[in-house]
């Protein structure tokens, strides 16, 4: 299963990076989300999959899956949530202010804003 997951990780990375390199803000934010998923899967795959039961003690199990990646991923999920929200609001505000979600246009727009303020 690990090999298949590794391939999926590659696919997720490809899609995420491609999205980040596009011009639209929303696509970029979505791209970061996909990247996060890719990293989570990568972390899981690294410590081997399904090597035991869920990491809960006292249930008559001796073998567990590695709990550390899970803790890391849990942290990552929550931070990712915060960052995604931040990105979203940033692009939302940028759109409100500059009236475009296109990265290239934003530059020329903000250059104009700067020019006017002088």
């Amino acid at each position: 299963m690990e090999v298949v997951v590794a391939v999926i990780v590659g696919i997720l990375f490809t899609a995420g990076i491609y999205l980040i390199l596009t011009q639209d803000l929303l696509r970029i934010v979505l791209g970061t989300s996909l990247l996060t998923h890719a990293v989570h899967l990568l972390l899981m795959a690294m410590s081997m999959l399904k090597t035991g039961a869920a990491p809960l003690l006292g249930r008559g199990k001796e073998q567990f899956v590695d709990p550390l990646p899970q803790a890391l991923i849990l942290t990552s999920i929550v931070i990712n949530f915060g960052i995604t929200a931040f990105f979203l609001v940033l692009s939302y505000r940028a759109y409100q202010k500059l009236d475009t979600t296109d990265m290239e246009r934003m530059r020329s727009e903000s250059a104009k804003h700067r020019g006017r303020r002088r």
């Binding site: 391939v7 490809t14 899609a15 890719a38």
Partner: peptide
């Protein structure tokens, strides 16, 4: 990047 990450994972 995708291919590289797959390789890294493997």
């Amino acid at each position: 990047v995708g291919v590289l990450m797959t390789l890294v994972a493997l």
